[in-house]
Simulated scan of single mutants.
Amino acid sequence: MSETTAREPSARDRRRWARYLVDERAEAAVYRHLAARREGEEREILLALAEAERRHEQHWLDLLGTEPATLPRASTSTRLLGWMARRFGSIFVLALAQNAEGRSPYDDDPFATPAMRADEKIHREVVRGLAARGRRRLSGTFRAAVFGANDGLVSNLALVMGIGATGVGAQFVLFSGVAGLLAGALSMGAGEFVSVRSQRELLEATEPSNYADEVLPDLDIDANELALVYRTRGMSPEDALARARTVVETARAADRSLPYRRPDEEAPSEHEVVGGAFAAASSSFLFFASGAIIPVLPWIFGLSGWVAVVVALALVGIALMSTGAMVGLLSGGPPLRRAVRQLAIGFGAAAVTYVLGLVFGVSAG
Rank of each mutant, 00 (worst) to 15 (best):
D239G: 04
A227S: 14
S236I: 04
L216C: 00
E214F: 05
V215M: 14
A223W: 05
R233T: 03
D220T: 02
G234N: 06
D213T: 12
R233G: 01
A212G: 00
V215S: 09
S236G: 12
D220V: 01
S236H: 07
Y211N: 03
M235F: 12
P237V: 07
S209I: 06
L216E: 00
A240Q: 01
N210C: 04
N224Y: 10
R231G: 07
M235W: 11
N210L: 15
M235R: 13
Y230L: 01
N210A: 13
E214R: 14
E238S: 02
V229S: 07
S236N: 08
I221E: 12
L219R: 10
L219P: 06
D239P: 00
N224F: 10
E238A: 05
E238R: 11
A227D: 08
E214T: 05
T232F: 04
I221F: 03
A240R: 00
D218A: 09
A240D: 03
T232G: 04
D220P: 13
T232W: 06
L226Y: 12
D213R: 07
G234Q: 01
L228W: 11
R231H: 08
D218F: 15
E214D: 12
P217S: 02
L219S: 02
E225Q: 10
P237I: 06
M235P: 00
A240L: 02
A227W: 11
L219F: 15
D218Q: 13
Y211V: 11
M235L: 15
A212K: 02
N224E: 09
D220S: 05
V229H: 13
A212R: 10
P217R: 03
T232S: 11
P217M: 02
L228Q: 12
A212D: 12
D222I: 08
Y211I: 15
N210P: 04
A227G: 09
A227Y: 12
D213G: 01
N210F: 14
N224D: 14
P217A: 00
G234L: 01
R233I: 02
A223P: 00
A240G: 01
N210T: 14
Y211M: 11
P217V: 02
A227N: 03
A227K: 11
V229N: 08
R233H: 11
E225F: 13
N224L: 07
A223Y: 08
D239A: 14
